[in-house]
Structure formats: C-alpha cells, structure tokens
Design a protein around this nucleic acid. Structure first.
Length: 208
DNA sequence: ACCGTGATAATCT
DNA sequence: GATTATCACGGTG
C-alpha cells in the first residue's frame, strides 16, 4: 500500500490507543524547508563515516503514554504549574511535538494527544532505523540525537512536512505487543506501576 | 553501582 | 533576580 501520513484525528484519540497504534508506524524527519530549524548535524555532515541524508526514517518500536493532570509521572501533573512551563504544549491541540531537554544533554520527543485543554502525550522511546540513520535509536534521547531533534522542534505539527508519522501498511503482530511499567518514573508513586509502556517483543531496538 | 550535565521549576529574597 | 533541587537519560564500571 502507498504510505499514508497519519492525520490530525489520529492523535485526538485516547492516549493509550495512540501509544499502542504508533507501534509499527514510520517516524519521518525531513530537512527540506527547515530554514532556521536545521539541526547542525543535518545537512552534508557526517556521523562517523556515513554521509547523512536529508531524510531520516525509523519504525516506532517502543512508546510510553503520559495521561492527564493526575498522572504524577507526567510533566503536566497538577502541582507543577505545568500550564506556564515547558509542558504547556501538552495542554494544547493534539498532533504537535513536545520536545524537552533533560539532564542538560539529552532531548526526548513526545506527540501531544487527546483534546485541547487535557494534558496528554506519547513519548517515542525507540525506533528501528530504516533510512538516513547512523547513530543508535534504542532510547528516547538516543533517537533524538540520531534524528537531530532538539528544542527547535518543540511545538511543530507532526502532520506537517518536517516531522510526521507514516502508515506503510506494516502491522506489528498483536501477539508481540507488550505492555509494562514506564521507565525512570519510580518517583511517581502508584502511577509508576501503570502499564503504560508499549513495545514490540523481540525487536532488538527496544530500549529495555 | 555511580555520576556527568545544564535546563527547568520551585523557593527563596 | 538569586539559589537550590530535581530530572520521562545514557555512558561507564
């Protein structure tokens, strides 16, 4: 089938459904038209010995859901003054990128879900490299480094021309889709135990 | 297991 | 404005 870009409505669904449905989809980053946003590593630069292409594609193999103002693992949790900080984008319209920096040296990519006014997003934790990628993509910060994604991509529509998801007809075997607790959120009390991490069992690019 | 790293946000003046 | 605590990670041992 001809690859089909995931439409805006896709991201307006329940967050757990989006996190599940993104498994097997293609994450695409293009350099064309990136004026003012081109990452330093993008055009004509080498990673190691491999020349980087202007288009980078990876198949999503691991995601996590962050759902609602009560979710203490979420940057948009009530009590963090989230609506005036970096996580404000999570309260906005679905289908936008939320890219945050962490530990001073890493970036992570999320996609905003559900309805405007309700803070929710899906963290892209790992992709299987398909095209134009020469660095490791098994981890949320590693994949951002491999794609050249950073804070300049924050707020971009993921239904636009720069950053988007494709359905190329590939479907993960439902029997191989696993769920479990999210990574690195032990501080979140009972919310840490929720099985809101999704991955394709056996895929070598899954981070954990 | 330990810790680098600096952006955020919370908590002070 | 200044100070402090925290961190949806990754590299090293």
């Amino acid at each position: 089938m001809a690859p089909r870009k995931l439409p805006r409505d896709f991201y307006a669904q329940d967050t757990l459904e989006v996190a599940r449905a993104l498994l097997g989809k293609l994450l695409v980053l293009r350099s064309a038209g990136l004026a003012g946003r081109t990452p330093p590593a993008m055009d004509g630069v080498t990673h190691g010995t491999t020349m980087v292409e202007g288009r980078r594609i990876g198949r999503v193999v691991e995601t996590e859901a962050y759902v609602g103002p009560e979710d203490l693992a979420s940057h948009a949790a009530r009590g963090r003054r989230p609506q005036s900080g970096r996580a404000a984008i999570m309260f906005g319209a679905p289908g936008h990128a939320y890219v945050y920096s962490i530990y001073g040296l890493h970036h992570c990519l999320n996609v905003v879900t559900e309805r405007e006014g309700y803070p929710a997003a899906v963290l892209i934790r790992a992709v299987e490299p398909m095209e134009g990628l020469s660095l490791a993509t098994n981890g949320p910060a590693r994949l951002c480094r491999a794609f050249g994604i950073d804070r300049r991509h924050d707020g971009l529509e993921v239904t636009g021309d720069l950053l988007f998801f494709l359905d190329d007809g590939y479907a993960a075997d439902p029997a191989l889709v696993c769920t479990g607790p999210r990574v690195g959120v032990a501080y979140a009390g009972e919310w840490a135990a929720r099985p809101w991490r999704f991955w394709i069992e056996g895929n070598r690019w899954v981070s954990h």
